[in-house]
Every structure is written in C-alpha cells, then in structure tokens.
C-alpha cells in the first residue's frame, strides 16, 4: 500500500465514522456537543480563508454570524420565506458588508486591523441592540428574536431531533473543507499566501494583493453567515449578545491559532481539541469552577504560541507520518512544505 492510499483510506474511515456516529450515539447531550464542535470547526474554517491565508487577524467575525442569523430569521418570521433561502440572502448580505469593511481595513497594519474589526463587530452589536424596527423589519433590540417551533420540516429548516442538524452541519463542514482545499491550490490561494507573507514582493510581481484579500473576505463572510442561519435554526432563539458577541469572535480565532492558521486541517484539529475541553468542563465544573475552560484555553494558547507558533497541526502531522513509518516501514515520501524561511 502506498502512502497516498493509506491517507485516502484513513480519510474515508474518518468520514464513515462521522456519518455513522448518530446511529451509535443516542445521547442528545453528546450529539449536541458534536454539533457545536462541527459548527466551530466550520466557523473557524471560514475565518481561516481570511485570517489564515491572507495573514491578518480579524476579530469581529461574529458580526457576520449575526447578519446571517438575523437575515434568515427576519425573513422567515415576517415574510414566511424558508430559512434555506434566507440563508443565501444572509450570506450575500454578509459578503457585501465584508467587502465594504475590507476595503478600508485591509490597508491597515496588523494591530490596527485587529482593532478595526473588533470595533466593527461591537458597533454592529450596539446598533442591533438599539434598534427595535428597521423600516418594516422587526429586529426587537436587546430582547432578540424567538423562532416558534411550530412548522417542523425540512423546508422550514426545523427538526424535532438533533440528528438532522448533525448531518446538515457535517455536510457544511465537509463543503467548506473542500472549498478551502481547492482555494489553497488555486491561483487565489497562492496570491493570498504571497500577499500575507511579503505584500511588497507580491505586488512587485504583479499580484493584486488587495483584490485577492477582498475576494477572500467576501467568501469568508458569506460562509460565516451561513453558519449564523444554522445557529439560529438550531437554538431557535437569537439575541445580539449571543450571536454578535466578542467571545464568539475570539473563540473562533483561538481555535484557528491553536490548531494552525492557514492550514486545512488546523481548524478541525483546533475544534477537536478545544471544544470538548470547554463542553466537559462546563458540564462537570460549571457550577464549582466557573471559567475553568477559559483558563485552559488561555494557557494552551500561550504555550502553543511560544512553542509551536504555527499551531498544533504541524507537530501532529509529523507524529502521524512517523507513526505510519513505524507501522509500514520507511517508505518515506519527500515532505512537502510551503516554508521558505
């Protein structure tokens, strides 16, 4: 068996396990945890399109989650439009906002960009909190919007059990991973990489860095907004503090950074490592040791940044390859790296 075949086999195995899990795992609590895990992996992968490949640090992505959640919810509550259509509308809206916000901010240097995106996210939250009615649209200010679970069915993006949500978010996650894979091997991916590492050099070679970053931003905000709709339909209740929160934005960035920003597997790895910590510490220590998971997050983050600044994805890949060598003998392939330094 060649190394490529082994990898392919492992991927298929993971896929089969992921799709089969709900058949074995009947506990709604565990399904809930898994759904959130996939949701975060999805969100982080979307974030990664701009935060990882374009080499900037956006910390206001919850604004796009909010746009997606509110767009589909308002459309379905007030106009009876299926959230599936609302999801696309929200995504397009978010992409437009993303381009508008990306236009001035991409000119900024590192720290300023991070601050501007924080202010943008927080600004959107404050506005939503202060507006009850936007023209004919009912936003309901800080009280948020509740989705009555009356019309259960696929067309209404609403289900009685957790399994359908599980499969929807799993498919969304696989979709974004495939998209990330293709982008990373496309011209756009190379442009982004070049622009992120050496913007002057890339521009001198005739790469339109600004345009590449805007495209990445539009895609990132589009896909993030789709998750907003999913979140709204999954929890059936959205309010500004829950969907457009700074914590949301930061956690996404954390997962990406710990897993490995700019890599395809990084976001999934990050979510796989951090989400269970957060869920289980909340279940078991939530009342006795509040905030424990955030202390763990912070510590892991600092340690990873000090010892593995490119994320845990790198040492884990190495360990995986070494393991394969041990089992199948040293059919060592040439390691492909994107590093030049």
């Amino acid at each position: 068996m060649t190394r490529q075949n082994i990898n392919r086999f492992a991927l298929i195995l993971v896929g089969v396990v992921a799709f089969g899990l709900p058949l074995v795992l009947r506990s709604p609590t565990y399904l809930h945890i898994l759904i959130l895990l996939y949701l975060y992996a999805y969100l982080t992968s979307s974030w990664n399109l701009v935060g990882g490949f374009a080499g900037v640090l956006p910390l206001g992505h919850s604004a796009f989650i909010g746009i997606g959640a509110y767009a589909s919810t308002i459309l379905s509550l007030q106009y009876g439009i299926s959230p599936w259509i609302g999801m696309i509308v929200g995504g397009i809206l978010a992409a437009i906002v993303g381009i508008l916000i990306g236009f001035p901010t991409f000119k900024m240097r590192g720290a300023y960009f991070a601050l501007a995106t924080i202010a943008f996210g927080e600004g959107i939250r404050v506005m939503v909190e202060n507006v009850d009615n936007l023209g004919p649209l009912k936003i309901n200010g800080p009280r948020g919007l509740q989705i009555p679970p009356t019309n259960i069915g696929f067309g209404n993006y609403m289900f009685a059990g957790k399994e359908p949500y599980y499969y929807i978010i799993l498919v969304m996650l696989l979709g974004i991973l495939a998209i990330t894979y293709f982008i990373s091997r496309s011209k756009l991916g190379y442009y982004l990489n070049a622009g992120g590492e050496e913007p002057e050099a890339a521009m001198a070679l005739g790469v339109n860095v600004a345009r590449a970053k805007l495209i990445a931003m539009a895609m990132s905000s589009f896909f993030t907004a789709l998750a907003g709709t999913f979140y709204a339909q999954f929890t059936l209740y959205i309010h500004p503090k829950s969907v457009i929160s700074l914590d949301f934005s930061f956690e996404i960035a954390f997962i990406a950074l710990i897993g490995g920003r700019g890599s395809i597997a990084g976001p999934v790895l990050g979510a796989l490592l951090l989400r269970p910590v957060s869920d289980f510490s909340r279940i078991y220590f939530g009342s006795t040791l509040p905030g424990l998971h955030l202390i763990i997050f912070g510590t892991v983050l600092i340690l990873v940044m000090i010892f593995q600044p490119r994320g845990l994805q790198e040492p884990l890949t190495r360990a995986y390859n070494r393991l394969l060598d041990k089992i199948f003998g040293g059919t060592e392939q040439k390691e492909i790296t994107h590093e030049y330094s």
């Binding site: 640090l57 240097r109 590192g110 720290a111 991070a114 930061f250 960035a253 954390f254 950074l257 509040p290 905030g291 424990l292 955030l294 202390i295 997050f297 912070g298 510590t299 983050l301 600092i302 940044m305 000090i306 600044p309």
Partner: peptide
Amino acid sequence: EPITVIIVTTGVWYILDN
C-alpha cells in the same frame, strides 16, 4: 508588529479574568 504577541496577551487576559 508581531501578531503572535497580541494573541499571547489575549491568552493572559482570559487567564487573569477567569
């Protein structure tokens, strides 16, 4: 302007607050 340092200070923030 190392972005990594910004991230580490964020970690410090989470640890101290919690």
